[in-house]
Write a protein that binds this DNA or RNA. Structure first.
Lengths: 227, 227
DNA sequence: AGTACAATCTTTGTATACAAAAAACAAAAA
DNA sequence: TTTTTGTTTTTTGTATACAAAGATTGTACT
């Protein structure tokens, strides 16, 4: 056993991008833990490539905030603190509100249809109780909204911010007591986008983030206690 | 003559970071023009380093959206289109609104004092008519607000977004007819932060961006006509 | 036993080497 | 003249080499 993230060679990408994706995935899933050092030769051997693509991947992870550089010491996986997470969530609250507002203006008929389906799928997933399935349905739903804004920069920004929360995505889903309100919140968002009611949509989106924040911060405090 | 961005060796940073800063500056000031190819050996010779730090710098510029990678062809300076710019401005409108709202909640007495001074300085700069001085005073003022949010992630985001607008920062200042309203807008923002009046502050910030947007989009259309 | 110091081993930062893909160019055929 | 094809050149993608900074370990000395 032991942590065994492997490179998937099926891609036809430069190695640096393959490495970048592999390392990012490993960090997001927690396979590489915060504070863990990213040693180039070690990673190069593990992934069967030279140091060059490893380094270039690390440069990108650095800019993305997923790793921290320590001068003359190299890279390590960035620490997640309560402060850094609430900073992220604070930004996301505003950005998600913007997303639904723009969606009100610009969503197409097809996208509205897809959003309705995504809402139903989410409800089904919740009823099934399968955490993984719920998380997936949740992502799909939000993805439709973000893309409906037609703003590429916004799509990218939401992705980057989501990334930081990725490790905690199951926590707020595991809490079964919240399930009904999650379904309800999604419903409200869908309905208000349908009615082009920006104010309600925006409030619902913010509430949605607030609820996630509570769970995530609780989780971080729990993790800290353990140490 | 010819474009001569030189590396500044005074720094005590890894070469990749020096190169990164140098290239970014060159792109932002327009010394490297959109569409221009970034050839590694060429840049390496010009800056007197090897290809390695150049490549690592390019990886970061790539993630920042300042350069575009073309497979097996290398990097080129990202094109600025009307769409990409209005995408940026759309996000900035929301983000700047968030900044002033958070500033209302969290600004310290010292920062409020500094903000007042920055407002006065801006007015002085406008009266002097010196475009460079005005731009500087403008940046200083907004910097105080953003930092007053105490949100590191937000500071970084605003910087990245500002970067995209950097090339046009003079345009909306050159338009003398707007000067009085710029001073007035800053005044309103200051007053409303002082009174913790989020709604007014937020509206003023949005208006501020709207005005910039008009000028910038006009400028982009002008540039396109020329071609 | 504990501390200081030297030798060694790691690991990064930077440069260079080499192969393969793409572009540019030239020559030959239609 | 135009098109096609083969060759050369350029440029990227990846690997490796080497030096310098840091960490570690072991040993001598107090």
């Amino acid at each position: 056993m032991g942590s065994d993230f492997q490179i998937q060679m099926n891609e036809f990408l430069p190695l640096r991008d393959v490495v970048f994706n592999t390392l990012r995935q490993a960090i997001l899933t927690g396979e590489l833990k915060p504070g863990e050092r990213l040693m180039e030769i070690h990673l190069a051997n593990k992934l069967g490539v030279s140091r060059t693509p490893i380094r270039e991947a690390i440069r990108k992870l650095e800019l993305e905030g997923l790793v921290t550089m320590i001068p003359r010491r190299g890279a390590e996986v960035a620490q997640i603190t309560e402060k850094s997470m609430s900073d992220v969530l604070e930004v996301r609250r505003a950005v998600d509100a913007l997303c639904v507002e723009l969606a009100c203006e610009r969503i197409s008929e097809e996208e509205l249809e897809a959003l309705k389906t995504a809402c139903d799928n989410f409800e089904d997933a919740v009823n099934s109780g399968d955490v993984k399935k719920i998380a997936q349905a949740d992502v799909a739903l939000h993805d439709i909204i973000v893309r409906a804004t037609g703003n590429q920069r916004l799509v990218q920004l939401v992705n980057t911010l989501s990334e930081q929360m990725y490790r905690y995505r199951f926590e707020y889903i595991k809490d079964v007591s919240q399930h009904r309100s999650l379904v309800e919140e999604h419903r409200v968002i869908y309905e208000s986008i349908l009615k082009k009611d920006k104010a309600t949509a925006s409030d619902a989106a913010k509430l949605h983030i607030d609820n996630q924040e509570k769970t995530i911060i609780k989780q971080i405090r729990l993790e800290r206690e353990k140490r």
